[in-house]
């Protein structure tokens, strides 16, 4: 009986925590852009997932985890089989890129920034990701972008490590549709 009351109390107290919400693949997009011999190249990842505990009123209680399936990369036909090779992203050894953050703060005007750890190809770096968060019907829309240096993660080794042909800067852009907590199946 005591256990039951305790469980009930726990359930009732649960909404005070930021509810965990799951990323909806439909409508969400994780893309990137870089320069190749001064030509802008665009790419994207087709498979990714995420868990977002975010309360716009209390951003400091947030936790974010994003996982990106490296092999789902798409740039252009000839490049796609190349960039998953060990010299680039080594999808076989490091199938996922991961971003985790428990440090989110409000910047005002619906804008926030998440500081966390981005791990790609076995290398981890602290990154700060600014984003905009808005409720849209039952869903939440998260938009943002940040720049990473491919050299920090050894993306492109050997002859590719020179940045005169393929630039070092990679702009990561995301548009995430986050489903409401109630619809989240565990």
């Amino acid at each position: 009986m005591r256990a039951l009351i305790f469980a009930l109390a726990l359930c009732m107290s649960f909404p005070t925590f930021a509810a965990e919400r799951t990323l909806q693949t439909a409508g969400s997009r994780i893309a990137f852009a870089f320069k190749q011999m001064n030509v802008s190249m665009d790419g994207s990842f087709k498979k990714f997932s995420g868990k977002i505990n975010f309360d716009a009123a209390k951003p400091e209680t947030s936790s974010i985890e994003m996982l990106v399936d490296i092999a789902s990369i798409s740039i252009y036909e000839e490049a796609d089989p190349e960039v998953i090779k060990p010299i680039w992203l080594n999808a076989a050894a490091f199938p996922q890129a991961r971003f985790v953050s428990k440090n989110v703060k409000a910047l005002g005007g619906g804008r926030y920034q998440a500081t966390g750890t981005l791990s790609i190809k076995g290398a981890s770096r602290e990154v700060t990701v600014p984003f905009e968060y808005k409720e849209q019907g039952a869903n939440a829309i998260v938009d943002g972008q940040f720049t990473l240096k491919r050299g920090d993660y050894k993306i492109g080794e050997g002859e590719w490590s020179a940045v005169d042909i393929v630039a070092n800067d990679v702009l990561v852009k995301f548009h995430l549709v986050v489903a409401p907590a109630a619809a989240t199946k565990r």
């Binding site: 011999m37 001064n38 030509v39 190249m41 252009y76 036909e77």
Partner: peptide, 25 residues
């Protein structure tokens, strides 16, 4: 193929077609 042509790396030419790998092939 989704790769813009930039003349001498300076003058970008407009992309006349949308990205479509089969059409590129």
């Amino acid at each position: 193929k989704g790769i813009q042509t930039v003349w001498f790396g300076v003058i970008p030419l407009p992309d006349l077609l949308y990205k479509s790998p089969p059409l590129g092939k």
